[in-house]
């Protein structure tokens, strides 16, 4: 089970973005924060689905 991203303050978001290779200004992060919080909450709900035996559609096929 993924740990919830309980902190979505600007500093946490800035660090998360930097890990992904992006350097967003504080004002931009603040503007993004409500949408990010909603998205992360929705994504967290997916953890409740029975997915442990479901192979994702990301298969690589040589032929």
């Amino acid at each position: 089970m993924l740990a919830r991203m309980s902190q979505t303050d600007a500093d946490t978001l800035r660090r998360a973005a930097r890990l992904a290779g992006f350097d967003f200004a504080a004002a931009d992060l603040e503007a993004l924060r409500p949408a990010i919080e909603r998205a992360l909450e929705a994504l967290a709900r997916l953890e409740r689905l029975p997915l442990s035996s479901v192979e994702p559609v990301t298969q690589y096929r040589v032929i």
Binding site: A20, L32, L51, P56
Partner: peptide
């Protein structure tokens, strides 16, 4: 930028 690799795979599992 805030969607992790695990989130992406979860999405493809739900698919």
């Amino acid at each position: 930028a805030f969607v992790s690799g695990v989130h992406y795979v979860r999405g493809q599992q739900v698919r």
